[in-house]
């Protein structure tokens, strides 16, 4: 059972994530877009979208720090448990609230604006549902367990297991005693990874960083230069 939950499901999700992206990239360049609807409604978007995106960046950075950086490293850097806890709970709660507020605004926008509602696809609806579950579970874990509750040191268990999955040495036993709220959050995150390549979330991989140094005016030839005769 443990193996199924904490080894099989993660690898199935990761496989779908990777193969799905390769397939979609090769097959559906035309569909690879943010599917912007700002032109249809901008009042709620103007507040909700930056909240959601910036909150997500903070949350992703926090997850990278918490899951990918071994505890030994931060300790070696002179950050003790208390300080780490303070930062992670403080920043985590702030980021979680931002994402949640942003998502709520974007959801409200999608439901209340008839124009936006009409452009909503089935993939969008599934994505919104899964995102809501992942975010609410994550916020509950951070606020409920670590801020208001006694605190749970996920870096001793979840983070080790997660790095094990990524390095192909998964240890499902590490997840056995983890509080259910963290288990559910992790599980829903795998579901998000599995649907990711089939939703508009693919626009994440097109974040236009290269824009910062490319020349302003792009020239392209219609046809390869003809050899002069």
């Amino acid at each position: 059972m443990n193996v199924a939950l904490w080894v099989v499901i993660p690898y199935v999700a990761l496989t779908i994530f990777v193969v799905g992206h390769v397939w979609r990239w090769r097959v559906d360049q035309f569909g690879w877009t943010t599917r912007t609807t700002q032109v249809l409604e901008s009042r709620l978007l103007r507040l909700g979208s930056p909240l959601f995106h910036l909150g997500s960046f903070a949350a992703i950075a926090g997850h990278a720090l918490g899951l990918l950086v071994p505890k030994g490293w931060t300790e070696a850097a002179g950050i003790d448990d208390h300080l780490y806890h303070l930062v992670s709970v403080g920043a985590g709660t702030a980021a979680g609230l931002m994402v949640t507020a942003g998502l709520a605004l974007l959801l409200a926008r999608r439901l209340t604006s008839p124009r936006v509602r009409r452009t909503t696809t089935r993939a969008d609806k599934v994505l919104y549902a899964v995102l809501t579950v992942v975010i609410l579970l994550g916020l509950t874990a951070t606020v409920g367990e670590n801020l208001l509750g006694g605190g749970y040191d996920y870096r001793a268990t979840i983070a080790v297991w997660f790095r094990g999955v990524l390095t192909f040495r998964p240890d499902p036993d590490l997840m056995a005693g983890v509080p259910p709220i963290f288990q559910l959050h992790a599980m829903s995150a795998w579901l998000l990874a599995a649907i990711w390549p089939f939703t508009r979330l693919v626009h994440v991989w097109s974040a236009p960083i290269a824009y910062l140094w490319r020349p302003y005016i792009v020239y392209r030839r219609r046809a390869p230069r003809a050899t002069t005769t």
Partner: peptide, 8 residues
């Protein structure tokens, strides 16, 4: 390559 996917 080209396929309609999730557009509208």
């Amino acid at each position: 390559l080209g396929l309609r996917l999730f557009t509208g």
